[in-house]
Each structure stands twice: as structure tokens, then as C-alpha cells.
Amino acid sequence: MNRSMLMVMIAGLLALVAVFTVRNFRRDPATKQDAAGAVEDFGRDEIEARESLRIHPEDCRARLKLATSLRRQGKISEAEAELIRAIQDKLPQEEGRREVVLQMAPKDWPEKMEGMFQQVVREHPDDREVLAAVAASYSAKGRWENAEPLYSRLVVVEPDRAEWRFQRGVARMRTAYFVNAVEDFREVLKGDSSNYQARLFLGHSLLGDARMSDAERELETCRQQRPEATEPLVGLADCAMERNDLTAAESLLNQAAKLDNKSAQVFQELAKLYLRQQRTPEAITALRRLLALDPNHRQGHLQLSQALLAIGNKTEASQHEAIYQELDRKEEERLNSKRGVR
């Protein structure tokens, strides 16, 4: 391994240990027995690796095995330290890159590591651990368009795992590929008709595809499954608004607000309804509540500015317009950075 690659790997590890925090992205579902067995296996790997290193302390592959077992047990800082030593002991580049990416994936890794992530995926196109970790990392960052092909590959690698179809459905739904998302969620429900989350997302994907009657049927089932949840009510309210039944929509949203008066989504939908009905004072009240719950809601600031302007409150309207413009500028910077624009 050349010195520059060594320094990039070590610098990346050390910087991320110091600066970034581990995110709790969704883990693969497993039974308690499976999880206990896996931990026991990883612990056994650790013991074997330490014994090998006791005899051959410069064995880079034994050091890598130790780093891997520690990572899988959640001993992150120890795993990072062992990986650095393995790299220093001339661990082959490809093996080092793979473990670096697996250690970095749960973290808010910097853009400069993007190339390494993509290279590792190319080098290990059928590696379930790599695919799952990188897909989950992209999902945690909201990079659904990057996560989707990785989940698609996982569906091929492990076709019987419903989890991968579910996660691919989520990625497709987030990128507005609603028809394909519907297919994935329906497939998940074939295996488990009680899966509330899959049915809820199926309902919203159907709604996104303008299939209102199908969406209402699925969302009503969700409502029966979880009468305490607000999400089915919001979805059903959207369906009602689409068919111009604004009275039904308002009733559903008011029910949702009673169930959860801290749901920004509920007040966002109430504001949308009131603005559509030209009920400006009620819209202003709902928008103020929305912004109290989510101060950085760009559209909330814009809509409140417009509503305040409509009733002649120019001073406060200009304040919210300024906040909206600043938030919009920051979002544009974020998107430009994501696209590689400088």
C-alpha cells in the first residue's frame, strides 16, 4: 500500500473518531436467539484473533479479523485502533478499504470519502455486509437515489429477505418512483399482511401515484391497525382533499391534531387546507404552530409570510420572507455540494 493511501485511511479514521457521532440507522431484523448467536461468534473471532496476534503480533490479517470482530460487537473505538494498526502493518489495499468503509458507514462521513465508498461497492458487488452498510448510510443521509440500486442488488443477492424489498420501496417512494415502490410494498405484504409500516407506505405511494381509492383502502386498514396513529389520518385527509371533500379532510386532520398536538405534519396539512379555503386567520394559526414545532420549515415561513401580507401585516411578513430566503440559500448550497458544484 502506498504511503498516500495509508495516510488518507488513517487520517479519515482519526478525524471521524474525533468529530463525528455514530448514527442509529436501521439494523437488519433478527430474533434474540440469532443476535445472541452472532455476538457469541464475534466474541469467538476476537479470541482467536488475539491469540494469533499474541504469537504473530505483525500479522495484518489477524489484526483485521480483530478489528472486524470488535466492530461487529459495537466496540467502535477499539475496532478503529486495530484497523489503523493493520493498515500500518501493510494490510492489502482492497481489504483495508473495505473495513474502513464498514467502520465509516454508520457515521456522518465527509464528502472526500465518497470515492472510496463507491470503489468498495464496485470491488464487492455481491458482498451483503458492504451493500447493506453503504445503503443504510446513504439512507441516513437522505441520499435515496444512491441507496436504491444497492437495495436492488441486495434483493438479487438475498431474494428471500423481505427487509431489502421494504428498504428499496422506501428509497423508491422517497424519490417519487411510486409505481415501483407500490410493487415492493405489495410484495412485502404478501409475506406479512400485518406489517403496518409497509401498508402505510403502500398507501402513501398509491396516493403519490394518484390511485385514490386504492390508497384510501390501504390507509383505512392502517387506521384500524393503529387507531392511535396520526399518519393514516393525514393520508386519508389528503385523499379527501383530492376529491374536494374539504369537510371530511378537516375532520380527519382535527382528529389527528387531538391525537398528537406536536406533529408538524398535521399542522402543515391543516395550513394547506385553510389556505385552499382562503381561511387566512386559521391558516396563520396553523402555520405559527408548525413553525413552533419546526423552526426551519422553509415552506412554512414562505406561506406564513404570504398569509400575513394578505392581512396587511407587512412587518412580520418581511421577517418570515427573510428567514425563508436564508433557509432557501442554505438548501441550495447543500444541493450544490451534493452535486459537486462549487
Score class of each variant (00 low, 15 high):
224 Q>I: 09
237 A>K: 00
253 L>V: 06
233 L>A: 06
246 L>I: 06
247 T>S: 15
238 D>E: 15
242 E>P: 00
234 V>T: 12
223 R>I: 00
241 M>Q: 12
241 M>C: 12
229 A>E: 14
228 E>M: 09
251 S>A: 15
225 Q>L: 14
239 C>T: 05
239 C>L: 09
235 G>R: 00
242 E>D: 11
243 R>S: 01
234 V>F: 02
248 A>V: 05
226 R>W: 07
235 G>D: 12
253 L>Q: 05
240 A>H: 00
225 Q>S: 14
252 L>Q: 10
256 A>K: 00
234 V>P: 03
251 S>P: 00
233 L>F: 08
238 D>P: 01
235 G>T: 06
224 Q>W: 02
245 D>Y: 01
239 C>Q: 07
244 N>P: 00
228 E>A: 15
250 E>T: 11
233 L>T: 00
225 Q>C: 02
239 C>A: 14
239 C>W: 04
251 S>H: 07
247 T>G: 12
237 A>W: 02
243 R>L: 01
224 Q>N: 13
255 Q>I: 03
238 D>L: 13
232 P>E: 09
225 Q>F: 12
246 L>A: 04
223 R>V: 01
245 D>L: 02
224 Q>A: 13
247 T>C: 08
245 D>C: 03
240 A>C: 03
242 E>L: 08
228 E>R: 12
230 T>Y: 12
243 R>V: 09
243 R>P: 00
232 P>W: 06
237 A>N: 05
235 G>N: 08
241 M>W: 02
239 C>K: 01
232 P>S: 05
247 T>F: 09
255 Q>P: 05
251 S>M: 07
234 V>L: 13
226 R>G: 01
232 P>H: 04
249 A>Q: 06
253 L>A: 14
226 R>E: 10
235 G>P: 07
231 E>P: 04
253 L>C: 13
244 N>H: 08
226 R>A: 14
242 E>F: 07
256 A>N: 03
